[in-house]
Design a protein around this nucleic acid. Structure first.
Lengths: 260, 260
DNA sequence: GTGATAAAATGAAAGAAATCGAAAGTAAAC
DNA sequence: GTTTACTTTCGATTTCTTTCATTTTATCAC
């Protein structure tokens, strides 16, 4: 199946090798040799050069992705990727973002999915405390990115603690997207981490429109820390498996509920 | 299919090269030479000039776009690594850090080298505005990491703008390590970026001990923005090629100068 | 486990293409 | 007429790739 169209430049070829190894999880020397129409020796030189940069790990007949301890962060992020791109909730939420908007993305996996969809956008300002969101948008030229400061919470790759919130008033945020551990009539939006909640609480208060993005399993659950009352929410984006009676109760409060 | 109509002016030609590389994902020297009716040497000069502006990446027979990878950031960071681990200045500087210290690392490459050496440490608190430092220390369990917030400056992978500095008083920082574009008797420590300098200035003022870490080429140079006077500096760590007369002048101010 | 065997890796040498440096040529601007 | 900016020509050099002989590694039968 390998195509035989040869990208002649060395850089291109190596880039393509990296792409393929990420995609398929492994590459073979013979396969690449046929694919690019160069000798196996050349491919070996490529693999060696890439291995020296820790971009992959050599094996006998080929190479596998770099699974190095040095780069825990990248690993952590990569693992999520498949999930991210599949998220329908994220896709829908991204549809609410207009060019020119200033918005907040929290450190949930749905925010990450939204971030992926924002990469091709122009003139969007994103405020976040998530390192993953930052990484996804790092090379998105049309996105201005502002990180809230704070102490690194390694389990969520986010920055927490009030350090970054001092002059939140400097930002006028149109829309905020919040994942949550639970949504309930009693406690509103809740999180399991008090630190995370402490960041989200003032942000939820500050965003003109508050979007709650959560899958069906979150309905009726309550985490230890509330960060927004239902009355603060503008729109809930969830999936069709959400419990009908809870959805109805929320709609009764004049909150938009979008089922995808 | 390459047209042979020659846009006569240099700027036009370079603009056209950029346009084409964005469109097709790659350009070849021979192809461009034929297209514009100029020699290949001229095209190479064009490509080199554009590459120096980071508008494209040179390859052997041509060039490819500057930002084509999905993960430009990870690539960018890893590229540096070889250089980093070799830095003797970084190694020496890291020797000044004791367990229990709270310190600031800026977004210079020397700071990155220091960060590498801090990975095995216990009970060290690092405050930084550098995404690269954060990434290096992400999985360093013994290091508590605090990021200053701000707007992402992509060229340096750092966060700038005052957002993160509002409650700097909350931190008691023992040591600060500052790279610089230049060190001089007149202007002290200077940077080429006013944004970067605006972050460093209050931090230099706040750190009990200020370490300037810079190689010999920085002596006598002056960047547009000063961020610390010589009188604020505790220790300078540089290499043995530093100009002797400048080193002597700095020592006369009762500043430690360490040559490695 | 041991050894045979096929596949893969390595090193050296050679060839081709691309690049670089320096001197020289060209053309417009002052 | 001179300056300046740009381009070209022409060797010398570097980079990239291949071939081929040799060594190493993985695998399987025993």
């Amino acid at each position: 199946m390998p195509e035989t169209i040869p990208p002649p430049f060395l850089e291109e070829r190596r880039q393509a090798i990296l792409g393929r190894i990420q995609m398929t999880g492994r590459v073979a020397v013979a396969e690449l040799s046929a694919m690019f129409g160069v000798s196996e020796v050349t491919i070996r030189a490529d693999l060696q050069a890439l291995a020296e940069q820790n971009l992959l790990v050599r094996t006998h007949g080929g190479a596998v992705p770099a699974v190095n301890g040095i780069n825990e962060m990248a690993l952590f992020l990569r693992r999520e990727r498949q999930v991210i791109e599949k998220s329908r909730i994220g896709t829908t939420a991204a549809g609410f973002v207009a060019d020119g908007d200033a918005l907040y993305l929290d450190s949930s996996s749905t925010s990450l999915a939204i971030a992926h969809h924002l990469r091709p956008r122009r003139h969007v300002t994103v405020v976040t405390n998530s390192l993953e969101v930052t990484r996804v948008l790092y090379d998105a030229a049309g996105v201005e990115l502002v990180m809230l400061g704070g102490a690194l919470q390694r389990t969520t790759a986010s920055l927490v603690g009030g350090y970054g919130l001092a002059n939140l008033e400097a930002f006028n945020l149109e829309k905020g997207f919040f994942g949550a551990h639970g949504i309930s009539l009693e406690a509103g939006l809740t999180d399991v981490s008090t630190d995370e909640a402490a960041v989200k609480r003032p942000l939820a208060a500050r965003c003109r429109q508050v979007f709650a993005v959560l899958d069906a399993t979150k309905w009726g659950r309550i985490g230890v820390a509330s960060f927004a009352a239902l009355s603060q929410i503008t729109t809930v984006i969830t999936d069709t498996a959400a419990p009908a009676h809870l959805v109805a109760a929320v709609k009764a409060l004049e909150i938009d509920v979008i089922l995808v």
